[in-house]
Design a binder for these strands. Sequence first.
DNA 1: TAATCTAAAATGGTATACAACTCTTCTCGT
DNA 2: ACGAGAAGAGTTGTATACCATTTTAGATTA
Lengths: 223, 223
Amino acid sequence: MIAADRVYAIIKQRILDGHYPAGSYVREATIGQELELSRTPIREALRRLVSDGWVEVIPHHGARVVSWTQRDVEEVFELRVLLEPQVVRRAATRIEASQLDSLGELACHMEQLCERGDNQAIDEIAGLNNRFHAELITAADSPRLQRLLEAIVQVPVSRRSFHHYSDEELRGSMRHHREIIRALAAGDGEWAASVMRAHILAARAAQMHPPARQTNEPRQQHA
Amino acid sequence: MIAADRVYAIIKQRILDGHYPAGSYVREATIGQELELSRTPIREALRRLVSDGWVEVIPHHGARVVSWTQRDVEEVFELRVLLEPQVVRRAATRIEASQLDSLGELACHMEQLCERGDNQAIDEIAGLNNRFHAELITAADSPRLQRLLEAIVQVPVSRRSFHHYSDEELRGSMRHHREIIRALAAGDGEWAASVMRAHILAARAAQMHPPARQTNEPRQQHA
DNA sequence: TAATCTAAAATGGTATACAACTCTTCTCGT
DNA sequence: ACGAGAAGAGTTGTATACCATTTTAGATTA
């Protein structure tokens, strides 16, 4: 792996773990000294981070880590509600049996973790959920659709997403996965798209919970 | 504006006007000499063009202008059918009177050109049509939606688009503009979205005409 | 003729030096 | 005291150089 790739990954990681807070500047010279590299590969990494939406460049002033407002989050959900159903709409007529099997295994694995319900399990579910969506995008076989989704679904949104879920919301999400698989197996794109739309809207509702909560205890379970 | 930005714009323009045909190579040294710049800003511009999908890099051989297949065109229309209606859906509740006036003037201007019907008029309509859509995107006030559309609606598709239209198709397109304006004035996002959807689907149908025709004579007018 | 070797050409990646720009701060004049 | 303007530090933007890698075409040779 070339230096610019490592720099890209390192900066991205530091943005995610809070080492570079939103609004702070990522200085080319500083990182260059830390990693014992010249500014050239750092610049290239930063440009890629810009085009991926992680940082923004103020000419002659520097690369600033983007700040996410509530409006940004809403904008992303609004677009996911359009694009993710299209993913399964396409996938329904293109997906192969082996891919359906993979999805089934992922869903199964997530359900098991869901039963455990501890914080680490929630984190693992998040990872598997990403793989679930990635598998769907592969099946959709539309490079542009994939690119658009990658451009907007950034981890600042999805990172802690499942920690916002109540138990009931989490179980509902698992049921969505199963129903999407059934719809795809039936080759019914509109069915799959409808479930996916509900899936995203449910995620938005969970995300919009008043102040972000770090517990997985429902606030009004069995209300 | 910094040099790399200019280079980016210049290369893009040359791809659009056919100076760099699809499949041809954009040489770093050549452009550098033309613009009296070093390879550094040219390289940066090319990287951006790659990530924006305008050119593709063949390792150690160069940056090649991408060729559009029929499949690419279909993929883009499929996404426009999703995204462009969303533009007017949002715009309906946000657009201001002055913007509606601008749209009205653009529509009026396009209709006049439509009556002329010669080739140059068709070209001018294409430019005005782009401004029409740009105005809508501005009114929609969603930077991400704008970015996604800019990422996929590349002019290789829309450049000669109206040359594919029959007279009737062209007039239908003008009527769509008017109806979109009416829907926006009424604040009815779903109405506007529906018309826009029809507008894009009509454009796709025109684009898909068997072999691309360079005349604006309808093939089966008043059939 | 055909296979192989060779050299030229182009990009890929990085480093370094210098130019240009921005923002801050300090001075100077009113 | 206060605002305009200039000097300075800090940061990014660009030029240039270097070598490695790869491709291509031409030359060579059996």
